[in-house]
Write a protein that binds this DNA or RNA. Sequence first.
RNA 1: CGGGGCGUAGCGCAGCUUGGUUAGCGCGCGUGCUUUGGGAGCACGAGGUCGCCGGUUCGAAUCCGGCCGCCCCGACCA
Length: 502
Amino acid sequence: MAAGAARRARRTRRQVDRDPGGGRIVADRLPKQSEDFPGWYVEVVKRAELAEHGPARGSMIIRPYGFAIWENIQRALDDRFKATGHENFYFPLLIPMHLLAAEAQHVEGFKLQAAVVTQGGGETLDEPLVIRPTSEAVIWPTYARWIQSYRDLPLLYNQWCNVLRWEMRTRLFLRTSEFLWQEGHTAHATREEAWDEALRMLEVYREVAEDVLGIPVIPGRKSESERFPGADETLPIEAMMRDAKALQCGTSHFLGQNFAKAYDVKFLNPEGRQEYAWGTSWGFTTRMIGGTIMAHGDDKGLRLPPAIAPIQVVIVPIYRSDEERSAVLDVAGKLRDDLAGNGVRAKLDDRDQHRPGYKFGEWELKGVPVRVELGPRDVEAGQVVLVDRVTGDKRSVSLAEATSGMAGTLDEVQLALFEDARAYRDENTHQIDDFDSFAAGVEEKGGFWVGPWCGSPECEEKVSAATKASLRVLPLEREDPRGPCIVCGKPGTERAIWARAY
RNA sequence: CGGGGCGUAGCGCAGCUUGGUUAGCGCGCGUGCUUUGGGAGCACGAGGUCGCCGGUUCGAAUCCGGCCGCCCCGACCA
């Protein structure tokens, strides 16, 4: 259609659809989760000032408030990596094309997603450079030089960096072409040791997801079709969002000897024989900021777990006259300092251009776990009002108690978020009785559907084609299948969890 | 790549069908006064190459042609 004609058609439609009086936004309210979950998500991300779209398609600008969340996640992970014996290093962004091409499955898996630099210094490059979609292809050739003997093993390294994957459809945090993550890359002398490492890091991810982000997850294995290109086994933690869809969170891969063989990483064992090294890799990304938003948020906006909330406690002063103002701010400032002294991330919102009600709404939107209201009446009584973002409960406590008890209050909020998310997940987890009711149920209400599976890719494919649900995870704690495969009726080997996913 | 939506002030939009003085409105922003226990009010003010290029016309945000970009829904993926 010609541009002019398209424009004209648009105009007539618009005149029908819209109030011509002027584009006033009726209410400054978020879309409701129950009515428009994707719209709710986009609005929360923007209005809470977490992130916005970058100028290039699919790119993301992470704003300070959003990045502060990422920094807290990074710290939680990095501390645990160090505690399990890992060190950080840094590998380059650009990978010569021939290196990526060395591992057959790996290159096949990423060739559609890789961006390639072909020009530099105004000239066409002799060899194109791939912008890393992940770094196995540059790290393993280096490991080949670093590893000669079993005495050099294991190598337990990690890097924090950005990667780039060309995506057809993007959503802020959940899927952007460039994203931030950590990628751990380890090499081991034995299969058992590498497998244990992959499991150990999966457990680190489970702990961070549940104890830090407050998101209950199911650790397990991916089926072959969902496996990382080049891995023998892919181990995800799988979570449920508040729209009953699944989200893959951290992932740990057991690489077997695939990359060692592709990049010729051999070591001399104690018996004097050459062996290929065994590998793992594991990653956790900025996607989990999106996961946290969708696992906990409500119709008022974000609900951040205290462990990663950039601001854990916000103090909103209330006053009328100048005298009241200085009296209230005096007490409020001291409270903030006392809280900070106790290791609490506290902020005093002393902006004069907004009234308290506005600030309440704004900090609720931004997900601050605890609000302290402090007005003239409180100052007189030596107390404050505490408001919990998760339950909305208000209670008055003494100033001293507000300071000394705040850490405990934050722990309660942290736990309440986790229990809330777990209750939601349990309510939306169903046992599969037969294929038809499963297909109808997953279509109608989403959620996790658990049932016996025979292990064949054909049956898995049939489910996906019929339901748009995918096999999310085969739980690590393997359950007895308790029945025949829901598709083919042959004996089941284990119970699989199916869901529609992000 | 297919389907849909959109491009006018920082944000959200009206104006275009039927071309015509200085292109409007709400929010936000600045200054001042009054306000402040659930999203304040009034006054004054700042802010625009109407996505880009070309054409028609005395005159284009508006009509014609071309181009670009972004968002949403699907196929790929953490």
